[in-house]
């Protein structure tokens, strides 16, 4: 009797937890799919000019004709948001990929070589991370003309550090495994040990770090653009949209800031949710800490 009750509570607890998790995964998955479809399909299908200015229809609140309203020169905000998301997502993915490749290379180098090379590389990483990374990012974009690629470079150059740390730690722990000893004894060169045995083993961790970094990189793009240093003002990105809408917010027009803001928050949370679920699958012991 008592055992049955315990089992029932245990089971109901288990199913409830599982159902919230699948709900989270499903919602996140649906939102990410929707985002990707929107940025890929909307521009070619609707074929409307996101830059079309209509001064007669400036700063209109949301209506059937303009579901998200219009901005201060009468451009349709829904269209601008989708185009902006497109740019932000491109920057996010490109920056996250670059950062992960750089981070994995540096981390694997440090971990595989060990000794003084490891110490030197990791002190370099420490030096980089002692500077606030937004500041460093601003410094990098300020050296170039505004555009997509300087932003990608800036975000990538400031975000390879955590991946380098993760990969190095993983490589260091793998390096002590007997199968690496066996490979060394079998005549494998350092390069072969790294490429054949170490990198494939850290690949899931690195891929996860890359996915977790996409939302973070999107936020950085928005932050840089909001500060007026990222993308040129006429390129719709979520950051430039919010930046240009700052003035109208004070005049009581809430829609030009709210909708781009939601376009930042929702896809990034959805991506982070998916990545978090993936991390729970590959490493159930570390459940917390989303890298946002």
């Amino acid at each position: 009797m008592a055992e049955a009750a315990i089992e029932r509570t245990w089971r109901s607890h288990g199913t409830r937890r599982r159902s919230t998790r699948t709900l989270r995964v499903r919602t996140s998955g649906a939102l990410v799919a929707l985002t990707v479809l929107a940025v890929l399909l909307v521009p070619p299908i609707v074929q409307l000019d996101q830059q079309a200015v209509d001064l007669a229809a400036k700063l209109q609140p949301p209506s059937w004709e303009h579901p998200f309203g219009t901005d201060d020169v009468g451009r349709d905000l829904l269209l601008r948001c989708v185009y902006g998301l497109r740019v932000s997502l491109l920057v996010g993915v490109a920056a996250a990929l670059t950062a992960t490749i750089v981070g994995t290379a540096v981390g694997a180098l440090a971990g595989a070589l060990g000794g003084w090379a490891d110490r030197a590389v990791m002190r370099l990483v420490d030096t980089f991370s002692s500077v606030p990374h937004l500041l460093l990012g601003i410094f990098v974009v300020a050296m170039f003309r505004p555009g997509v690629w300087p932003v990608v470079v800036s975000v990538a150059l400031t975000h390879w550090l955590s991946t380098a740390r993760i990969v190095r730690a993983e490589v260091l722990s793998l390096r002590a495994r007997p199968y690496i000893d066996a490979a060394v004894s079998g005549g494998a060169s350092r390069w072969r040990v790294t490429v054949r045995h170490l990198l494939p083993a850290v690949a899931p961790q690195a891929a996860l770090a890359a996915v977790l970094m996409v939302p973070h990189a999107m936020w950085h793009e928005s932050a840089l653009s909001f500060l007026g240093l990222g993308l040129p003002a006429h390129t719709a990105s979520l950051g430039t949209l919010i930046q240009s809408a700052r003035g109208s917010l004070l005049a009581g027009q809430w829609w030009p800031t709210l909708f781009p803001g939601l376009f930042i928050i929702i896809p990034t949370l959805a991506l982070a949710g998916l990545a978090g679920a993936w991390r729970e699958r590959i490493n159930p012991r570390r459940r917390s800490e989303l890298m946002l």
């Binding site: 199968y179 000893d181 066996a182 490979a183 004894s185 005549g187």
Partner: peptide, 16 residues
């Protein structure tokens, strides 16, 4: 290096 053939205690840890 390859003059030595090595077998360890735990096969799980010594195989990639």
């Amino acid at each position: 290096r390859t003059a030595f053939g090595v077998v360890f205690q735990q096969p799980r840890l010594s195989a990639d």
